[in-house]
Design a protein around this nucleic acid. Structure first.
Lengths: 341, 341
DNA sequence: GTGAAAGCGCTAACAA
DNA sequence: TTGTTAGCGCTTTCAC
């Protein structure tokens, strides 16, 4: 397509009356090349407008300096902060990232995995789709010894490195906080418990209740996808319970915000009648009234941690699976929506 | 690193007693290869676990099937929806995307451009950093005839294809709406007017005022970056004006939300005392009280449009610059914050 | 319908 | 310190 010819190391070599290998070496700042020639080569390279050809390099070295990323929904605040962290850490290490979005579909996830496999990424970071059941689409990577790091949404099956937060701990922490505020009848609005991140948060919630000898009934557990409609329905369901719960732990900020809005519309006061804790520390939490107590889920840090660990591994530390799970600290951010005292 | 050997077309060829060229042809479904051998080759390729080597292919064909993307802040709702649109359209056309984030810095943007240039992307999509003044870092692409599409944040200097919304029109539309609601003294909170997207919205605002013969004074124009502090300060500034404005057009939803919160805290009623229109249609707009009237800025569509147009061009339609600007329709979403009637 | 052979640009033995 | 050479895996012209 472009007709301005590409400069190669051969052109530089000819121009300077040295051999291509010398140029190649010089360009890598190899000290076996004399300082003087190195300098000369650098200069003419720049002046001739040389750019190295990564394809030739990759072909030779069998590596792409590229990391494949699969996420479930790029267009979400949490994921985009994760990706931004990955991009940062990978970029600093000289790696590029190829991003694919599974749109929450296991089928598309598998297609993306295949695609990235064929593009010969050096490593993978994946956040699984909600409905991903088996990990067969990652086995080509395993066979070829291409490291895969799972992030946030992992699978128990995965015998691999993953970066997660301590979901159980966060569930426990959030519930404990509500108990500390005097709540005695605490509900839990969450998503599909098949998924381990939700199952673990649920377990933390139950543990906290049990520890404080507070009762649990099935009706206090509401499963609702974090859509506007479902969250509104969930809130109404809670209001219908007798007696009404005096606290609720919602595993998503957006859903929590919708719940609060619904409560207020019906004259239920927050936090006085019902205290609310959300999850994710999204920006909305600071803007609604009352401001939202939430769990800060450090997406950026998680992305950075995943990428850094992948790169370290790639750069030949070589100790596969030396760490199998990295747990990033999540913290409770207390705001108005949960403060009864 | 991986010891399980890679299968090449030579292995397949040997296995089947045909020549590598036949295999190469067959794998591309070239009809000059007999149907029978084609089928056999496909089967053994699959069975042997062959994957084509994109580096060799790229080296031969001088193209990477990759699009470089530069954004100013990946971790923002608008940008992430843009990227998600790019990913979708590019992926459908068989292109991968390499994403880089300039963190709003012109310097980093230039570094990213260089990086992508060296990675030999086939095309580029860029959303400029706020402080990017000159476009020198894109000239290597121009010289090599690599198409660059600018998105959203463009530059007048750019003699290239760009995808934008009609910013002037949105400014006009938003202001006109406020006028229609009976506002007579309308303020404008926006960012650095050096940047054309803000300059154009401002012009639209002024045009609407002029058309309705409404007065404008300098004090009605408040420049504030969309941070929490600056937006709060902006709101306070407006409340201090005498007489106080009865309407305000804020060029960012988050900033608008902070303004509303600040107004309400000081006992200023929205929309009764002051009507508010935001910009971007972010999710917060639906959750705050009152819900926020805003301009819907279709990030996903813009990303898709940019990628599709780039890919078309790449696939050899070849008509460089046949379209120089694609304008995507933006629309006003009316909610409570602006309804005086 | 199929094969032989050259070459894309680079790196890394090995030689000098 | 520098040069020679082979080869990474693929495509494509030209020949058969």
């Amino acid at each position: 397509m472009d007709h301005s010819k590409e400069i190669t190391i051969y052109d530089i070599a000819k121009n300077l009356n040295v051999s291509p290998s010398t140029v190649s070496r010089a360009l890598k700042d190899d000290p076996t090349v004399s300082k003087k020639t190195r300098k000369k080569i650098f200069e003419t390279a720049a002046q001739m407008g040389y750019r190295s050809n990564p394809f030739a390099k990759n072909l030779r070295q069998q590596q792409s300096l590229t990391i494949g990323v699969i996420v479930s929904d790029l267009d979400s605040p949490f994921i985009s902060s994760v990706v931004s962290g990955i991009e940062k850490a990978a970029g600093e290490a000289g790696y590029g990232i190829i991003i694919t979005d599974s749109s929450q579909s296991a089928v598309k996830e598998a297609a993306n995995a295949q695609n990235l496999f064929h593009r010969r990424v050096d490593g993978m970071i994946a956040s699984l789709a909600p409905d991903t059941k088996d990990l067969a689409h990652f086995s080509p990577f395993v066979e070829k010894n291409i490291p895969v790091i799972f992030l946030d949404r992992t699978s128990e099956m995965a015998e691999s490195t993953s970066v997660v937060i301590d979901n159980m701990q966060t569930g426990y922490m959030a519930t404990k906080h509500l108990i500390g505020q005097g709540c005695r009848r605490i509900a839990h609005v969450t998503s599909d418990l098949q998924h381990n991140i939700y199952a673990l948060r649920y377990k933390g919630y139950r543990d906290a209740l049990a520890e404080s000898k507070l009762p649990f009934e099935e009706s206090l557990l509401v499963i609702a996808e974090p859509t506007e409609e479902a969250s509104e329905a969930a809130a109404k369901k809670l209001m219908g319970l007798k007696p009404m719960p005096d606290g609720v732990f919602v595993t998503n900020d957006f859903a929590a915000a919708v719940c609060i809005r619904t409560f207020l519309e019906q004259g239920v006061r927050v936090p006085k009648d019902i205290a609310v804790v959300g999850f994710n520390n999204e920006v909305i939490g600071r803007l609604i009234k009352p401001t939202l107590t939430t769990v800060n889920y450090p997406g950026r840090e998680m992305g950075e941690a995943a990428a850094r660990s992948l790169v370290n591994h790639l750069k030949g530390a070589g100790n596969i699976g030396s760490i199998s799970t990295m747990t990033i600290r999540a913290e409770l951010i207390v705001r108005q929506s949960s403060l009864k005292k």
